[in-house]
């Protein structure tokens, strides 16, 4: 089975090649899909032996991560925490409560929340507190490229969620009165 090209509109910045290196460690019997004792042949992807099994953040040439240019100690725990956070680059969908589409063209970055300890309610006041200092951060960009560039610069893993395209047929008032030769399926009220 060949690896199809990754979906063009939704992929992790990290290439899926490391998958191959991980599966090397697994006994073939566990890779097989379907009934373990039945037909389908093992479908392990081609192994790319040249790749290291360590995950290396892929950066476009010319993009320096923030930690490099800031001059902060490179192995600061903070920096390590900042890296490997997964962010999402997306265009927020329109609120179905409203018809306005303002700000709909903007792109955003937000963070996947941290598990455990990310949020709790203050028992006295009921305020929401969090140990995750990035949880409230939501950044807005003019374009997808800007957002991706920023994520790269910060050294974040990101994935892009493709905006959905609305498909609306041409609409016409006269459609309400179109002659139908067969039994009516709806009694229009207007």
């Amino acid at each position: 089975m060949c690896l199809a090209k990754p979906s063009h509109h939704l992929m992790l910045s990290r290439s899926y090649q490391p998958a191959a290196t991980i599966t090397r460690r697994i006994a073939p019997s566990f890779i097989s899909r379907g009934l373990a004792s039945e037909s389908i042949p093992s479908s392990s992807p081609p192994v790319d032996a040249t790749k290291s099994s360590d995950v290396v953040p892929s950066l476009s040439p010319g993009v320096f991560t923030a930690e490099v240019v800031s001059g902060a100690p490179f192995r600061l725990v903070l920096a390590a925490q900042l890296r490997h956070r997964v962010v999402r680059v997306y265009q927020p969908t329109r609120n179905t409560m409203q018809s306005g589409g303002a700000k709909g063209e903007r792109w955003r970055i937000d963070f996947d929340i941290l598990q455990g300890g990310a949020r709790w309610e203050n028992p006295l006041m009921g305020y929401a507190s969090s140990a995750d200092y990035m949880q409230g951060t939501r950044m807005t960009f003019k374009s997808q490229e800007d957002a991706i560039h920023f994520a790269k610069k910060q050294g974040w893993d990101y994935y892009v969620q493709a905006p959905t395209v609305k498909k609306i047929p041409p609409k016409n008032y006269s459609e309400n009165y179109i002659y139908r030769p067969n039994k009516l399926r709806i009694m229009k009220t207007k």
Partner: peptide
Amino acid sequence: VSVRDRMWAISPSLVRWD
């Protein structure tokens, strides 16, 4: 991420979201 790599190995369509 590596769990999803494993999913990719099982069936690539599992991680081709949308």
